[in-house]
């Protein structure tokens, strides 16, 4: 299992309320019917952090808790501006739409079913 703090994107000193809020926000984003695997991961991470004793056990007994979430937040806090939301460039939006168009195109396969037995007879 991946580090539950990282999965939920919370710092290792987050309290019950913060963890729950974050978990519910992520579950809204990745509900079990649409993203079952991600939901399972979120559920397992929440189970591991849902109370103080579990969090202590995760922090003390596990080796994969690299506390990277905290560092990421430090970096973002240091790098973000306090002004109103900025705008992306047209080029960036175009890149994302082009990505989407490519993903939405149908997969191409040869017209025959695949065994090729009919060909060249």
């Amino acid at each position: 299992m991946r580090d539950p703090f990282t999965v939920l994107g919370v710092a290792d000193d987050a309290d019950d309320a913060e963890i729950r809020r974050r978990y519910l926000a992520l579950v809204r984003e990745f509900p079990p019917d649409r993203a079952p695997e991600r939901f399972q991961e979120l559920r397992a991470a929440y189970d591991a952090l849902s109370d103080k004793r579990k969090r202590l056990a995760t922090k003390l007994l596990h080796t994969n808790s690299a506390a990277l979430s905290r560092l990421s937040m430090d970096a973002l806090r240091a790098g973000s501006t306090d002004g109103p939301p900025a705008r992306a460039t047209r080029q960036t939006v175009a890149v994302l739409l082009a990505e989407g168009i490519t993903l939405a195109l149908p997969e191409l396969s040869p017209p025959h079913s695949g065994d090729g037995s009919k060909r060249g007879r």
Partner: peptide
């Protein structure tokens, strides 16, 4: 706030979009 894991899941285009819109 965004964390490295969530950042890692984004494509480069999405990362650029988030960086630009988040200032």
């Amino acid at each position: 706030a965004m964390d490295a894991d969530a950042w890692n899941r984004l494509t480069p285009g999405q990362q650029r979009f988030v960086a630009e819109t988040s200032g």
